[in-house]
Write a protein that binds this DNA or RNA. Structure first.
Lengths: 253, 253
DNA sequence: TAAGATTTGTTCGTATGTATC
DNA sequence: GGATACATACGAACAAATCTT
C-alpha cells in the first residue's frame, strides 16, 4: 500500500523492517500528525506479536529516517516527528557519497535553480528579511587577511544563499538550494576549497549580492534573476579550477 | 569529524546511535568501498564493548539509511552497500511528506531543470539509447480508451523523463529529475491525477517528445532545450487544475 | 540428499537509567 | 526524596538462513 509499486522478489525482509513498515501503516491509517504519540514498547509488543528487541530495532529504523523521536521517562515514548531539513540533507548527502559528483555538476544545477529562486523571491520579502540578508553580506565586507578568514567569508556567502532558500515558499526549490549550499560548505570546510585569493572576484561577488538584495526589495524579478545568473557564473569560475570530486566520505548524523 | 559542524548540546544520543556513528567512522577511516565486509556481530560486540542488542540496533540504523546490507549464513555478515537511487528518493520523499508541496511547486522546478538536462544530453546519446527513448514514446501512440489506459500512458510519459535522467552524466541533475518523475508518478497512481481526457494535449505532448529525441540525436542542444521548455509548459497546464497537495502519506521502504 | 558449520535473527528475563509527579 | 512510568541495555539461549562437504 504505502510501498513502492512491487518489489520483484524482495531480497528478504527481516522482521524489524516489516514491523517498521507496519508501524508506518499504523500511523498513516490514523493520519497522525507531528507530535502524536505512538504506542509504547509493551503495547507494540502486543500489537505486532514480536519481542521487545524486534520492536526496538524497528523503532531505530524509523528514528534513523527521522520519522519518529523518542523520549524516556514518564510521559515519554515515541512520537511522530517531522523529518527535519537537516536530516533530509544528510540522508541525501549519503547518496551522493557514492556518486561521482563534481563541482561543475553542482554549478550546472545552481546556474538554473538559483536564478529561478531569486526571481520568485522578488517583491515577497519583508523588511526584516531584507535586513538580515544585508547583514550577511556585511560579514565579508573587507578583504580577508588570512586563509581562515577567507574561508569564513566563503561560508558566509553560502549562508546568504541558504537564507534565500529559507525564504522561498517552494519547498522543493528551497531544499535544492539549501542542499547545494551545504555540500559546498562542507567542501570548503573539509577540503580548503577556496581560491588562492582573488580580491577582484570577491569584490564583484559582494557587489552582486548587494545589487540582488536591492532588486529583491524593489520587486524587480527580471533583474534579480539576471544578477543571480551572473553571480553564479562568477562563483563557478571561482571554483572551477577545483577538480575535486565532491563526496568521498560518509556524512554522519 | 564526520559530523555536522558541532551540535550545540545534542538532545541526547542513545548508545545504538553512538555505535552507528563509530561504525561509520570505522568505515571511513579504512576508506572501505562498496561490498567490503564489516566485522560480524561478535566482533562488533568486542570492538565497541556493547551488547548484541545494541550492535543490532546500530546496524538497523545504518541499514535504514542504505549504508549497509546484511546477509545471513556462512560468508554472510554486513557489507558496505551504496545507497541506491530508489532509497535516496524514498528517504527524501519522506521529508516532503511533511512539507506542503504543490504540483505547481514541482513544475516551477521542472521548468528550469528539465530543459537544462535536455540541452546537456544533446549529441551524447548512443543509438540504442535513442532507440529506447523512441520505444517509450510509442507506448502512448494512440488515444487512450479507458481511464486506466490514460493513467498508464501518463506514467509511461514520466518514464521517458526518468530515462533521460538516467542517461545524464550529472548525478545531481539526474537525481532531481528522477525524483520529480517519481513524485508525479506516485501522484498519478494514488490520486488519479490525470486529466478528464484531452486528446489534443496528448498528441502535442507526444509530438514534443518525438521532436526532442530527434534534436538529441542531431546534437542540437538549443533546440532540445526549447522543445523541453515548451513541453514542460504544456504538461504544467495539463496538471495545473489539480490543486492537490502532493505528499500526504508516508513513503515506505 | 543430508549433515554440519557459520552467521544473522529473535526471544525472554532481568537490571539500570531517566524524567515526571 | 520517593514512587511511578517509561525507555535503555545486557546476556544467555534458541531459531532460521545459507554455505560447504
Amino acid at each position: 500500500m504505502t510501498d513502492t509499486p512491487a518489489k520483484p522478489s524482495s531480497p528478504r525482509r527481516s522482521r524489524p523492517v516489516k514491523v517498521a513498515d507496519q508501524i508506518k501503516d499504523w500511523v498513516v491509517e490514523r493520519d497522525l500528525k507531528q507530535g502524536a504519540k505512538l504506542p509504547n514498547e509493551a503495547e507494540m509488543i502486543a500489537l505486532f506479536g514480536v519481542s521487545k528487541g524486534t520492536v526496538r530495532e524497528a523503532m531505530r529504523i524509523l528514528e534513523a529516517q527521522g520519522l519518529i523521536v523518542t523520549r524516556t521517562g514518564p510521559g515519554g515514548g515515541s512520537f511522530v516527528g517531522e523529518v527535519s531539513l537537516e536530516r533530509a540533507k544528510s540522508l541525501l548527502a549519503n547518496y551522493f557519497y557514492f556518486q561521482d559528483l563534481s563541482v561543475s555538476d553542482i554549478y550546472q544545477m545552481r546556474k538554473v535553480v538559483e536564478p529561478e529562486l531569486a526571481a520568485s523571491l522578488a517583491g515577497t520579502l519583508k523588511p526584516d528579511q531584507i535586513a538580515e540578508l544585508r547583514g550577511l553580506v556585511q560579514q565579508y565586507d573587507r578583504p580577508a587577511e588570512s586563509p581562515e578568514e577567507e574561508r569564513d567569508q566563503h561560508i558566509a556567502s553560502l549562508r546568504f544563499h541558504a537564507k534565500l532558500a529559507e525564504y522561498s515558499r517552494n519547498p522543493l526549490l528551497a531544499f535544492m538550494v539549501s542542499f547545494m549550499a551545504r555540500i559546498l560548505t562542507d567542501l570548503t570546510v573539509y577540503r580548503r576549497l577556496y581560491e588562492p585569493h582573488n580580491e577582484e572576484l570577491r569584490v564583484r561577488g559582494q557587489r552582486h549580492q548587494l545589487d540582488l538584495v536591492e532588486a529583491l526589495e524593489a520587486g524587480d524579478a527580471d533583474r534579480a534573476e539576471a544578477i543571480m545568473r551572473s553571480h553564479m557564473l562568477g562563483a563557478e569560475s571561482l571554483m572551477q579550477r577545483q577538480e575535486a570530486r565532491v563526496m568521498r566520505r560518509f556524512i554522519a548524523e
